[in-house]
Computed example of a mutant assay.
Amino acid sequence: MKIRAQALLFDNDGTLVSSLASVRRCWTRWAGEYGITAERFARVELHGRTAAEAAADLLPPEVVPEAVARIETLEVEDVANGGVHLLPGTRDLLTALPADRWAVVTSATRRLAEARLDAVGILPKTLVAADDVTRGKPDPEPYLLAARALGVDPAECVVFEDAPAGLRAGRAAGMTTVALTTTHPAHELTADLVVEDLSAVSVLVTADGVELSARR
């Protein structure tokens, strides 16, 4: 299968980098600090959502801003403890792309996203974070903003995601979607192409854009 595009848009956590252990560690500590029971905490989906959305499911509105600042601090500090690492295929794929052909689109705050990306040596020219939008994934706003920043028609973009909410955002933006089974099983992911991780994808950059192929 070959997919042609003008730009590639990547989610970060679970797509480019693995941060699941850090997320579990930090959010478990955070929940304890705010007196949230394990049972209540287990019912809240963290992956693919902003911290503000998750906190709003668990705490009174007046506490949410302070709580969001606290979890951001915990997660940023945890990066220094080896809280993230590159997923297979990430560096090779990004190295093959011109800087103006790709962007990172994340539900994390800019401060946290930059900390995680810096820790693994990834420096995107274009980064869309939770701070940049009024509506996070599964709303298409983050991906549409990235396409606009790159000067590319949304229909000419390919979204790489590991979470159902992010894939819904990509589809709602009118983009081609590629799902990675790094955090969710394939049957939970609806996309134009489903692969194990970025090592299963090869790219060819041409004068007309980017051509993607799934490795066999």
Score class of each variant (00 low, 15 high):
14 G>H: 13
19 S>W: 14
23 V>R: 07
25 R>H: 14
26 C>S: 13
28 T>F: 07
34 Y>V: 01
37 T>S: 15
38 A>D: 15
42 A>R: 13
43 R>W: 00
44 V>L: 04
45 E>P: 03
46 L>M: 12
47 H>G: 04
57 D>R: 15
58 L>N: 12
62 E>F: 04
63 V>P: 01
67 A>H: 04
69 A>T: 00
75 E>S: 11
77 E>P: 03
80 A>R: 15
82 G>D: 08
87 L>N: 05
87 L>R: 03
90 T>G: 02
90 T>C: 13
95 T>L: 07
97 L>G: 05
99 A>M: 00
100 D>W: 01
104 V>L: 11
105 V>Y: 08
107 S>K: 03
108 A>F: 09
108 A>V: 06
110 R>D: 05
112 L>C: 05
115 A>V: 04
129 A>I: 06
132 D>C: 09
136 G>L: 01
139 D>S: 13
142 P>G: 05
145 L>G: 00
147 A>D: 01
148 R>Y: 10
149 A>L: 14
155 A>C: 08
156 E>V: 00
158 V>A: 06
158 V>H: 10
159 V>N: 07
169 A>W: 08
171 R>A: 14
171 R>T: 11
173 A>R: 14
177 T>C: 15
178 V>Q: 05
183 T>C: 02
186 A>K: 08
187 H>A: 02
187 H>E: 14
191 A>P: 03
198 L>W: 07
198 L>D: 01
199 S>E: 13
200 A>C: 13
207 A>H: 14
208 D>T: 12
212 L>R: 04
